[in-house]
Design a protein around this nucleic acid. Structure first.
Lengths: 249, 249
DNA sequence: GAGTGGTCTAGACCACCGT
DNA sequence: CGGTGGTCTAGACCACTCC
C-alpha cells in the first residue's frame, strides 16, 4: 500500500482502493476480490475493510451486490449532486469552468424576520451580510447573499474572508460547518437581482435558501442564492421507496 | 423490549428506541444512557446498538457528540426532504394532506429521444406511459408522467398498477427500485400542463425529471413531475464542505 | 455447494469532553 | 480523572447468487 495514515484506518484503506481504481487496476464494471481475501491481502480486519467499502459506496465509486460481489461503478458521478457539492464555487468547478466573483459588497445589516428566525436571533439584531455575483467562465450565473451573526464574524472579517473561503473563516472561529439544509424554489428575476445578473426581468431562476449548521446543531450561516435556470443541472439522489435501510459495520 | 423481530437486529433495536422516544421516555434534548449500559440493558452487543443508533442518527432523530453523549434531536424532521421522500404521495402525506389522483390516462407511446436515452432503448420503441394529476386535499398540485419499457410493464398493467403503487408493480416483475436521481429545474406552466393543473399560463413550476434504477443499476422507470411552486417546500440535506467523511460501525 | 456480501458478538484500545 | 463516543480486531453464522 502507498497509503499515508492521515485519518482513520478505514479512510486510509478507502484512499488506497480509490487510487487502485483510478490507476486502472480495477476498471468500470470489474469485480473486486472477495472481502476476506482483500482484507487478508491488505492486512486489515474484514470489518475495517467493509467500513472503507461503505465509504466508497457512498461516494458512488463501488457497488455491492449481495451474493455476487463488489463492483466498480460504471458512471461514477452525477452531473452536479446537490447533496455532495457544497458552495457555488465547487459547483462551478465541477462543470469545468473558472469560478469568479464580481460586484462584491459586505456590510452590517439588521436581521430581517426571515434571517433572524434562521439564525436564532431577534429581528433587527446586527448581522454581517456578504453579497456577490458569482461567474462561471466569465458569465454571471449566481447572485448570492450570506448572513451570519456579527459577533461570530464581523463585517470586515467577513469581507476579508470572502477572498478565501467564508467556511474556513467560520471554522477558525470555532464554527465548523457540518451540514446545510437547502430549500429550493422556482423564481423569476426582478429588480436588483435581474440587474446584478444582467438578465431581463422575468428570467427564470432557481433560488436556494440554505441554513448551515455545526455538528452541534448551532446555525452558523444562512444564504440565499439566485441561480440562472440554465446555469447548472442540479440533481439529487433519492433513496428508494422500499425503506432506506443502509449498511454499517 | 416490545420489539417484533422483523428485519435485522439493528432495525429492531432502532424501532424499540424510536418507540421509547416518541413515548416520551426520552424527550427532545435528553441524553440517552451510555452505549455500554444501553447495550447491556437491551441484551445486545455494543456494535449492534451502535448500528441502530447510526440508523436513527441518519433519520435525524438522534445526534451523537463525541466525548459527551447521544442526544434526542430538538426538531427531528425537515419539512420535506427530497432525499428521503420518494414519490408524490409520500410528499403529500408528509404534509398531512389527503393525496388523490384525477385526469388519469395510460397508453402506449413511442419513446421520445429524452425518454429513450434515459431508459436505454431506441427512439420510437414502445413504452408504457402513465399520466395523472395529483391532488393534495383536493387541490391540484402536481402533473406527473411516468414512462417505462412496455416489455417490463404493459400499458394495461401500468394502468392497473396506478390504483396501487407503480413501484410495487415493478417490484413484482423483478424491478425493485433502489434509488432515483432527480434533476430539478424551474419552469412555467404552458399549454396542457396549465390546463391540467388549472392555473394560468405562466404560473411558476418546479419540474423534477427523475430516473429510477434498481440496485443493479438498471433503469426501471423515468418520470417528469410538474410541481406547483407553492405546493411543497422542497429541501435537501447537504453534507458539509470539510470532507464528507461519515461514520459507520 | 462454494463463494459472495450481511449481520452479530466480545473484547480491546483510542480520542474527546467534562469535572 | 472517569465516562463518552470512535475505531479496530477475530471469529462466527446467516442470506443470497451463481454454477
Amino acid at each position: 500500500m502507498t497509503t499515508l495514515n492521515r485519518r482513520s484506518l478505514r479512510h486510509s484503506i478507502a484512499d488506497g482502493l480509490r487510487e487502485r481504481v483510478v490507476a486502472g487496476e480495477f476498471g468500470p464494471g470489474d469485480r473486486l476480490p472477495g472481502e476476506p481475501e482483500l482484507a487478508r491481502s491488505l492486512g486489515v480486519s474484514r470489518s475495517s475493510l467493509r467500513a472503507a467499502i461503505a465509504l466508497l459506496e457512498e461516494d458512488g465509486l463501488l457497488r455491492r451486490l449481495h451474493g455476487s460481489g463488489t463492483y466498480v461503478t460504471d458512471r461514477p458521478l452525477m452531473r452536479n449532486d446537490l447533496s455532495r457539492n457544497f458552495g457555488v464555487s465547487s459547483m462551478i468547478a465541477a462543470m469545468g469552468l473558472e469560478p469568479g466573483t464580481v460586484d462584491e459588497t459586505c456590510a452590517a445589516e439588521p436581521a430581517s424576520p426571515e434571517v433572524a428566525s434562521a439564525l436564532g436571533i431577534e429581528v433587527g439584531e446586527p448581522t454581517s451580510m456578504l453579497r456577490r455575483v458569482r461567474t462561471a467562465g466569465g458569465r454571471r450565473v449566481v447572485d448570492e447573499t450570506d448572513w451570519c451573526r456579527s459577533d461570530l464574524l464581523s463585517p470586515p472579517a467577513m469581507a476579508a474572508a470572502a477572498q478565501g473561503s467564508v467556511y474556513a473563516a467560520l471554522a477558525e472561529r470555532g464554527a465548523v460547518v457540518h451540514h446545510g439544509v437547502a430549500t429550493i424554489t422556482p423564481d423569476v428575476a426582478m429588480g436588483d437581482v435581474a440587474l446584478r445578473l444582467g438578465v431581463p426581468r422575468g428570467t427564470l431562476l432557481l433560488t436556494l435558501w440554505q441554513v448551515d449548521s455545526t455538528a452541534g446543531g448551532a446555525v452558523a450561516m444562512v444564504s440565499r442564492e439566485h441561480h440562472l435556470a440554465d446555469a447548472f443541472e442540479i440533481s439529487v439522489y433519492r433513496r428508494g421507496p422500499g425503506d432506506g435501510g443502509e449498511d454499517q459495520t
